[in-house]
Design a protein around this nucleic acid. Sequence first.
RNA 1: GCCCCCGUAGCUCAGUGGAUAGAGCACUGGCCUCCGGAGCCAGAAGCGUAGGUUCGAUUCCUACCGGGGGUACCA
Length: 572
Amino acid sequence: MARPDDLDPVLADLAERIRAALAAAGLPDTDPALEKPKLAEHGDWATTAALRLAKPAKRNPRELAQLLIDHLDVPEVVEELSMAGPGFVNFRLAHRYHEDLVRRVVAEGADYGRRERPTADREHVNVEFVSANPTGPLHVGAGRWAATGDAIAALLEADGHRVDREYYVNDTGEQIRRFGESIALVARDEALSEEHYRGAVVTELADQLREEHGAEVFDGDLGEVAEQVGQLGVEAMRGRIEAVLHEMGVDFDVWYSERHGLHASGAIEATIGELTARGETYEAEGAVFLRTEAHGDDKDRVIVRSDGRPTYFAADCAYMRDKWARVTDDADGAGGRLFYLLGADHHGYVDRLKAAAACLGIPPERLEVRIGQLVNLLRGGEPVRMSKRAGETVDLDEVIEEVGVDVVRYHFLRQGLDTTVDFDLAVVAQQSMENPVYYVQYAHARISSLIRMADERGFDAGPIEAADLTRLTHPAELELLTVMAQLPLTVADAAELRATQRLARYAEELAGTFHRFYTECRVLALEDPDRSAAEQAKLDALGRARYWLAVAAKQVLANALALLRVSAPERM
RNA sequence: GCCCCCGUAGCUCAGUGGAUAGAGCACUGGCCUCCGGAGCCAGAAGCGUAGGUUCGAUUCCUACCGGGGGUACCA
């Protein structure tokens, strides 16, 4: 978990003073471990230092907490501190802290919530996700990996890392040949067998290729035609996939071709050579094995079949080697990381991927494989059966068309990676108002409307520098300010844990606090004809302060949604 | 058999060692002379079971029960 004191100079100062107080009190040094108290009444921040020192010191934690308080050089920004519960020390920050926050958010704009990292802490992360075989359209399940991988990438960037989004295109091999054969047979109007791909897409591709390349591409020896049509079909399919992902708001930096990058380039042979040179291979039964068992795998894996052809796993190794070279050649020396987002149906590959990394000399902690549980596609509570080869799929583009990108993305992003997601077409389509994404977006649209209304009415908020933010003292205002202040920490935690749901839930919480503020605190037309001029002036000042608070809240909400790639509508 | 994930409110899910376990939906009852009621307020309801570690466990460990997925010289 990210440290609050890494993200906020005020808290960094506080943490330092706590450690100084511990030293002054003759206590051993410990992590101040600043955390948010569960209840707002307890204050803005708390330290559990006394609790964690109690054991080794064999002393009453409350007594230690009192010692800490007695020796603490209380910074100006802390308005109140108290001991509570078993030994928490709670801090309440002065109102000025909140005022500064509004100004900071407005000044930083879209950058609020992001952080810069010193080179030593920065990583160059290759995030590989989706990578579905280009032999058919993406189905709904792939949408989960698209949304999640993209959001994790966005979070890592916001957290100060350098990120490449990469899609591995499996564009060669037996299944591609069979795919090409299927297209050719359909084009020739010949019968397909059980083994072939079918469905509307195959027919469409046959038509498309005939149009683009002429009917001749389908003529001749089926074996040769299958090969060539397979390539053309895969290229066309890849284009379609790219377009759908773009619709999903996901744009890859690299579309890595297995065929060109690994086979044609000789990278596979080179990798096998390197593995052999490292002493990680041996021959047996006419095949070449990689010593993965010695690195935690269940057994050694074949990388070259007895007939001399490399296995798919050999390509995986070569690909990993290639990616590792690309994330470790940074001039500034950022540490490399290979991130794989895989579905639970691939969890059996994790050990062998890690073993492959070890065989290649890649530090194991630099290879990160995250497994996401699968998506249950339902329609009215009934499971929808899918088979790509039979062409019975519910495609991602159809679902996007039906319920909208924001709903699809948000549905996947607000749930943790290791829970199985039920995606019920009937529920999501018909009862989409239940989707919390609307709750969040509504808050944003509401603020937008408020600001529009202010303009229309000629409301003069004045420059933010002139606004008297000390007037923001209503409980709903303070609650909103407190939540707004949490974005940077939430982003850092979500990035570190690769947990998109943290940010989604945060957006919901922020929207909720805004709605409460909006209900209780009027911004415009704070008028009272019975008041004196002096009293009216105070109301005007309050209105201007609230206006800037609303502007800042809108920014924070927009920033959170932007990281999720969910739109922040001005009206809806 | 072995491996991975899950079991928290009626339902869908947050909460990866701290104080009184949260939200949406559903249910009950309130709130618009005034900036968007897709909203707000209030109420009821829960950590699968049994042990263990810890000052402190929904969180870590073990066993069991229930649900899902994986265990190829396939790609």
